[in-house]
Design a binder for these strands. Structure first.
Lengths: 193, 193, 193, 193
DNA sequence: GATTAACCGAGACGGTACGTCACGTCTTTAA
DNA sequence: TTAAAGACGTGACGTACCGTCTCGGTTAATC
């Protein structure tokens, strides 16, 4: 009945210990302060045990991020403009204050070399897009948005401009930035007054 | 006149040799194929000579990128729409085909740790924005654009969405993407038909 | 039984390979021609593997010397005088001809800085004294020597004068030197005709 | 008259500054704490100025030692035995207490590679032998010693055994060692009771 | 007084070796 | 077969000296 493979079964607790250790170390010193030896030692686990479950340091980190995703609640103000403005404002605050999260950039780089890591990163991106998608979907159902196609574009533009400023140009996130951005995006899309 | 500091002046030729070697090696194998020992050997230079001028591998790479910026000619079709579409299309082609340049991602990550590197990256970003800025400036002078504020926003949105797709979401650059993107942006800004 | 420590045991073959490589390289170019990278490469071993076992280049060299001690056979002519003269003569020939072995001087210097290295050097010295000690012990058993205490002194005087000429004063080792030296040392010590 | 070479004459003060800096640094950290850059900086002198006068680091150090030779007064007790015992005792005290002078060992090693340095070291040795030579010469003139040949031998044996214990075997310098050593040497040479 | 040539300080130069670190894999014994 | 432990080969890192070279400027003796 039990279709168990032969040999000693994997220790389920190890997964948890490893991920916890990873999250802790990431919190302490970011990617730079994270080495596999350190994770193994802190988790009380052999290095091989980690590599048996995750193919690389970055795969582990990605999983650790998915375990503890930054909870961003979907705002619900009753209008697209309100929702998007609320979301963009909170994003601006988060991006503007954070001490340069180095985890995502590291994964972005690592994804260049590894196919599967790239897929995981894309999946993670999609997860993070969900908030905006939900907002836009509700707007569409309410009739605030008419053209279906623009929705994909709006997601890219909204998130893209934030990431671009954060990682590339370094331009600051003034309080007005979020508002003007949403204004611009909605200036012709919104159907009614 | 020139208030030269004492001691033997730095060999200007070394700068060139080092940067050239860096560019060559980057071209061959990206960041992964670039080690300081290799740069030094190829440039016929001691490692200390490199570290005397650039504090880190990444600072060197950034300078190398600025020395040999990817020549993107500013399209001039006579209209904003034409110019932006041409630009976005060429960008889509470039981003869509390139074999995953790992250089920029690497610099983005490294910029997380080093203040000065961050500044250099921002400067480099500004350089890359120049093409779009020029297009928009001409459009403004022609009277195609009326609201000056939007120009900054458009730069962020246009480039941001490209980088976001490239580095994060992994969504492909269909030929229609560029066109639709420009359409969307202009539909919110162009003064006249 | 064996209370083996946990983890993968050290590769005993590596010890041998490293020591062999060290001995080879010392033979080729002395201490000057010995770098840790070279030893590692020739031994087919990582540098870390060497440093895991020996704390420094010199500790490694000392061990290498102990592994391959210069075989100096104990002469056995039937009399102290004969034995010592034979030994001193062969030592004079060896010291006089050798192309300035730089290994021992290097270790002597290095031993100044490192406690454990110093201990190893002393142990090595004791090893090299063994030949003379054996000769004197036999002489004592034969009754040629009476005063036990002088034996230690004779060892120091005999070897000391050789090393001193070799390393410090540079005075040559004339064929007569060895003979006169032994004559002097034995001139009152030998009990009988 | 003045057969001076053309050009600016060498700054005599520089010699002094360099040697002083060298002696200071040797005192602080021995050879290990001595780098040419440091000497130059402390002496307020260009490195080229040092190399114009001394061909190598070790040549400089040797000169520095000769400038400040350890003043060992020649004891004069009226008898060879008294003189030698006094000398050997003071040597034992000096060798026994000193914190492992690393300068001489370093020079010994360096002399392996450099012909002229070797010559300088031999000369320096001869200088240090002078005390014993003087003692023995006086003894010969007094008639305490009869065989002239032994004098050379005694110098080698006396100093050799000290250096050997100091640098190689590491055996301690007990208070009795000096006395027994002199007893042994004199028992083989002294003409009269 | 101008010229010349060796000097001066400072510090950059090409090299070489150092000892450390992290990677991802391998090899033990024990469960 | 998996586990913890930890050794393994690899390869890059950034540092420290070495002894030389290159600056602008200084200091005599020679012209």
């Amino acid at each position: 009945m039990a279709d168990r493979p032969p040999g000693r079964p994997r220790d389920a607790g190890a997964d948890h210990a490893i991920l916890t250790a990873t999250i802790d170390l990431l919190g302490d010193g970011g990617i730079a302060g994270l080495s596999m030896d350190l994770v193994a030692r802190r988790a009380g686990v052999g290095k091989a045990t980690i590599y048996r479950r995750w193919g690389s340091k970055e795969a582990l980190v990605l999983d650790a991020l998915n375990v503890a995703p930054p909870a961003v609640p979907v705002p619900d103000t009753g209008s697209v403009r309100g929702d998007l403005t609320a979301y963009a404002t909170s994003l601006a605050k988060k991006f503007g204050s954070a001490p340069a999260s180095d985890v995502l950039p590291h994964l972005i780089e690592a994804a260049c070399y590894d196919e599967r890591l790239r897929a995981s990163l894309h999946e993670y991106s999609r997860l993070r897009q969900q908030t905006v998608r939900t907002i836009l979907k509700r707007a569409y159902e309410r009739g605030e948005l008419t053209d279906d196609d623009d929705r994909e574009l709006i997601v890219d533009l909204l998130l893209g401009s934030f990431f671009y400023r954060r990682l590339m140009s370094g331009d600051p996130f003034s309080p007005r930035f979020a508002v003007r951005l949403v204004d611009f995006l909605l200036s012709r899309t919104v159907a009614t007054i």
